[in-house]
Each structure stands twice: as structure tokens, then as C-alpha cells.
Design a protein around this nucleic acid. Structure first.
Length: 547
RNA sequence: GCGCGAGUAGCUCAGCUGGAUAGAGCGUCGGCCUCCGGAGCCGAAGGUCGUGGGUUCGAAUCCCGCCUCGCGCACCA
């Protein structure tokens, strides 16, 4: 048992003896300020109302009844409004590092998910242009969430949903067609709602080169097929540059060719959740919390966008994914309610919260002190590849992950580049490289560091005890990040821990120290290296041994 | 107008299911290289947590009103 568990039991026993409910579950917490001890309990405050006594009195009573010597407690005292602070003997917790050393790369991994399947859908860009920085945020988020879940026992599928059907694709085709005609006849105008980017011209040039017979650009279907294929190749390159790999690419167009869209509509009609009005087919989404009913099939006979979305998620459900997470921009927020409504209305047992959504706020790109307007149609935006080329994959990933997805994100390209040496990601990687340097210089094989025979009480400096606490808190942090689908928690944990590592490194020498300090610090250095490498791995960032 | 998100140090942002004197990075100012990497470390300055109420032993955190900003409110996706 860890000191935390022993202390928790001891506090509960004492509390119950004083009249607390038998199921009372005190929770220990790490005090913010190390001067408040290693662990603290607010049990007295929680019990104040039930026992009808002052927290301070209860706390004192509790302390007098506590049998804490067995947890290695050197001191237990009441402080503040009624906190009970515990100070542990040196080494009482550091012993836990043996588990870190034994686990190595798998430290922090759990089986919480029990091997259940989960589908993570992210990026899912229309193949109408290269991936921009907003997609980059999705790619970083989705990939990190997928890694978080797979490392906590879930069987993860990374999925990219291609919206390769519908109006936007038609616009794309007509835009390319216009550029083809511009090339061959000298005149061609981008249609209303079309795309103006320079890459459209490039695609047109490639098309003409590959299809000399259609110099007039009359084969619109052929152009569309060519353009979509070309852009999918481009997006794959973007993703490759970013280091993101998908297990499944799912094509929206297949939903139509397979009849899945028609089937979904038929099911909805059969369930009596639809009605006809003004020449359109509507879904009663208000039955599921929407503020108004939504059109499914327009009066021109085509479907609105959320119908294939419903069909897609139905297919996902039937593929066995009882859990699904969609990572999307917050500008798609309005789809959440109606897609979920449609899925419930199918009557196939899909629960109300399916799929789960991680919505992220917009990314604003700053360059030369000015906001770069992101508009595919106007052809002005920063691509993922631009960013990766300029500031590096690791830095881009960290920057896009360091803030919670709910927060808007300002990505100043110039700052990211100019301050790259002061970058948080370098700070973290440097911490890893430094401890790695200890082993390199000392010519020590980390595989031989098991903690066996180490006198943990030799880790007596306050700075190293803080580092020990941070390392032991890693599994809990990963579990929390996975549970809340929040990779930014890992990002800030790494920054905090890197700071502790740098401080410790500066103060506590390892090589050349006498025993038992040498062995104990070597073990601590290895444990720190493990945690930094594992955490960076979750975020898809490299952990270099030298820089 | 309605919905969602955000408002915390000069700037960019953390702050877990309410806890003790609200934190970090960058920036500013001042120190530290005979020592495993100075891409680092130590210290200082800097805050009415948008605002007004409420809940209670205790609120940046939970509830309500208001203000500001962003996004979304189509038979576009």
C-alpha cells in the first residue's frame, strides 16, 4: 500500500470512531505549498456539519486518534481552518519509484478501458484544399486523445471522414474547370462560392497535362474525380508531415453509393419522426432537445448535410463502435444536437450522448503582427505544412495542445519562430536531454537501474522530494486527462515537471556523489526520464537524448 | 434576440469532483558558468480572478443577473 492509501484508511477509521458515517471516504490531497506537508486531509471540514462541531476541534480530535506511524508519518498536525497535514519520513514515498523503474515505457499505462473499442474521428476535412492550422489543432488533439485512450486500456481506431460529396465538392470541380478553361481558352471565371486559391490553378495545370483530350474542360465529373484525388494526396502529405496516421479513411460518397443514406432516411420515416411540409422532409429534432425541427430533404430533392452525418454515425455504431469521439471545430457546434437527435430517432438503441464531441475554438494565425485571415475560398491561409516547416513538428504539436480546446488560440508564427529557443517544448525536451546526459556521461545503462538496494531516504533534499511527488502523480494525471479528453493537462504537467527536473539537476549532483546518494539519485534521474519521455509520447512529441 | 465558449499578472494562458498566502511561460529588473549541458538556475517587481448578488466553515471554481469578446443560429457544409 502507498502512504496515501494507508493515511486514507487511518483517517477514515478515526473519523468513524468519532461518529462519522460508516461509508465516509476522506480524500487526501497534495498541499499546494510544500511547507504544509506531503499530504493533507480536509476531513474535519467535511465532517463539521454532520458532527455539529467546529472543524478545528474535529481535526484535533482526529489527530489524537490517528494511528499513522505505520505510514511513515513523521508529523501530523492541524493547520489553517482545520486541515490535517502529514509530513512523511524521508524515503517513505520515494520507495514508489521502483514501480516507475520496473514499468519504464509503460509507466502510466492502465487497463481502465478494459479493451473496449472507441472510434476517434478527427480532421475530417473536405478535400477542397490543403490542411490549415485549424485542422492542425484537430490533428494534434485527436491524435493525442487517441493515444491517451489507447494508453488507458481502450482499443482505439483513428478515423478520417472524407466529405467528398455535396455542394462544396461541386464548387471545387467547377472552380478547377474554370481554371482549366482559363488556361486553354484564356477566359474562365471562378463561380459563385468557388475556390480562389493558387492550388486550384496547379490542379488545373496537372489536369490538362494528364487529360489533353479534355482541354475544353467539359468533363466535369472527370475534373471532380481528378481534383479530389489530387487534394487527398496533398492532405496525406500534410498529415505525414505532422506525423499523424489514420486507421480508417471513410468516404462520405460511399454512404450514397451503398444506399446507407437512403436507409437512414427510411428508418427515420418508419419511426414516425418525420413530416412533410413546404415540399421538404423534416425531422422532429425538437423531440430531442433541439430548438426547432430541421429539414432533412430539401425541396430540390437533395439532403441537407446532417443526414449523411447521421447515416455515417449509424454505420459507425453498426461497425461495433459503442463509443465514438468526434473532434471538430466549435463552428460545427450546431450539428451536435441534430446529429444526436437523428441517431436517437433511428430507434436502434443509440444512446443520447452518442457520439461524444470535443469541440475546439478557433485558431487565429498572426504573422508580421497582423491576423492572417483563414479563407480557403479567398486562398489565404497558413497550412499545417507551412507551420511544420517553419517551427518544427514538435513545437507545432505542443503549441496546439498546450491550451484547453475550449480556449481560442492565437498562433503567432513570428513569435513561435523567433522564440523557438525559449519555447516550452524545448524547455521540456531539454530536461529530458539533461537527465539523459547523466547516463551518457556516466556510461550507465538505464536498463540496470531497478531501484534494488537503493536507500530511498537518501533523497532528502526538498527539491528532489518535490520531483518524486510529481513523478508518482503521473499515472493519476494521465487517467484524468484520458477521462476528460483533455491533452492540455499533460502539456502543463510536463512543463511543471520539467521545471522541477531543471531545479533538481542544478542543485543535486548525481555523478561522483558518495553512496547511498549516488544510487538513489540515479534512480530518480531515470524515473524522471521515464515520465518526461512517456508524457511527450502521449502528445506525439519526440524526447531527444541530446539536443 | 437565442445557444455555446471565453473574460485570472504588461502579454499568452494553467488552476482537477469548492480548500490554506491564486500559479507558470514570455517580457521587465537584479544575481549565478573551476561542477553530470548556462538552450539552464536563483531572486524581485507585477492581481479588487470582467461585474453585482446568492449558496457555506470556506468561492477563480457552484447558482442567478449584467457587461465585453469569439463562434454558431439556412431547404450552406
Amino acid at each position: 500500500m502507498t502512504p496515501e492509501q494507508i493515511l486514507t484508511d487511518a483517517v477514515r477509521e478515526a473519523a468513524v470512531a468519532m461518529g462519522a458515517p460508516a461509508d465516509f471516504q476522506p480524500q487526501l490531497e497534495r498541499p499546494r505549498d510544500p511547507s504544509f506537508g506531503d499530504w493533507a486531509s480536509n476531513a474535519a471540514m467535511l465532517l463539521a456539519r454532520h458532527l455539529r462541531r467546529k472543524p478545528l476541534e474535529i481535526a484535533q480530535d482526529l489527530v489524537s486518534r490517528l494511528d499513522v506511524a505505520r505510514a511513515g508519518v513523521s508529523e501530523a498536525y492541524v493547520a489553517g481552518a482545520g486541515f490535517i497535514n502529514f509530513r512523511l519520513a524521508a524515503g517513505a514515498e520515494a520507495h514508489g519509484l521502483t514501480a516507475v523503474l520496473a514499468a519504464g515505457p509503460s509507466y502510466g499505462r492502465t487497463t481502465d478501458g478494459g479493451g473496449q473499442v472507441v472510434n476517434i474521428e478527427f480532421v475530417s476535412a473536405n478535400p477542397t484544399g490543403p490542411l490549415h492550422v485549424g485542422h492542425g489543432r484537430q490533428a494534434a488533439l485527436g491524435d493525442a486523445i487517441a493515444t491517451l485512450l489507447s494508453s488507458t486500456g481502450w482499443t482505439v481506431t483513428r478515423e478520417f471522414y472524407y466529405n467528398d460529396a455535396g455542394v462544396q465538392i461541386a464548387n471545387l470541380a467547377r472552380s478547377v474547370q474554370a481554371r482549366v478553361r482559363e488556361l486553354t481558352t484564356g477566359s474562365g471565371e471562378i463561380p459563385e462560392g468557388g475556390y480562389h486559391g493558387e492550388y486550384i490553378r496547379e490542379i488545373a495545370r496537372d489536369y490538362v497535362a494528364a487529360h489533353p483530350a479534355d482541354a475544353a474542360g467539359d468533363d466535369l465529373a472527370g475534373i471532380q474525380q481528378f481534383a479530389v484525388a489530387a487534394l487527398r494526396v496533398e492532405q496525406d502529405k500534410d498529415l505525414q508531415a505532422f506525423g499523424v496516421k489514420f486507421d480508417v479513411y471513410y468516404l462520405e460518397s460511399s454512404l450514397y453509393t451503398d444506399g446507407k443514406v437512403d436507409e437512414a432516411v427510411r428508418l427515420l420515416v418508419e419511426q414516425g419522426r418525420t413530416f412533410e411540409q413546404d415540399g421538404a422532409l423534416w425531422l422532429r429534432t425538437t423531440d430531442y432537445g433541439d430548438d426547432k425541427d430541421r429539414v432533412m430533404r430539401k425541396s430540390d430533392g437533395t439532403y441537407t448535410y446532417f443526414v449523411p452525418d447521421v447515416a455515417y454515425h449509424l454505420a459507425k455504431w453498426r461497425r461495433g463502435f459503442t463509443r465514438a469521439v468526434d473532434v471538430q471545430g466549435a463552428d460545427h457546434h450546431s450539428t451536435v444536437t441534430r446529429v444526436r437527435a437523428g441517431l436517437q430517432a433511428l430507434g436502434v438503441g443509440i444512446p443520447a450522448g452518442y457520439p461524444e464531441y470535443v469541440l475546439h475554438q478557433m485558431v487565429t494565425v498572426m504573422r508580421a503582427g497582423e491576423e492572417v485571415k483563414i479563407s480557403k475560398r479567398a486562398g489565404s491561409y497558413v497550412t499545417v505544412r507551412d507551420l511544420v516547416d517553419e517551427v518544427g513538428r514538435d513545437a507545432v504539436r505542443y503549441f496546439l495542445l498546450m491550451r484547453k480546446s475550449d480556449s481560442q488560440l492565437v498562433f503567432d508564427v513570428d513569435v513561435a519562430r523567433a522564440q523557438s529557443e525559449e519555447n516550452p517544448v524545448y524547455y521540456i525536451q531539454m530536461a529530458h536531454a539533461r537527465v539523459s546526459g547523466i547516463f551518457r556521461v556516466g556510461e550507465i545503462d538505464v536498463a540496470g537501474i531497478t531501484g534494488a538496494g537503493v536507500e530511498w531516504s537518501a533523497l532528502a533534499e526538498p527539491d528532489e522530494r518535490e520531483l518524486v511527488k510529481a513523478i508518482l502523480g503521473y499515472p493519476g494525471l494521465i487517467a484524468a486527462a484520458a477521462r476528460t479528453l483533455a491533452p492540455h493537462l499533460v502539456a502543463s504537467y510536463l512543463l511543471d515537471t520539467a521545471r522541477l527536473v531543471h531545479t533538481w539537476y542544478h542543485k543535486c549532483h548525481v555523478l561522483g556523489e558518495p553512496e547511498p546518494v549516488h544510487s538513489a539519485r540515479l534512480a530518480l534521474a531515470r524515473a524522471a526520464q521515464v515520465v518526461l519521455a512517456n508524457g511527450l509520447g502521449i502528445l506525439g512529441i519526440s524526447a531527444p537524448e541530446r539536443m
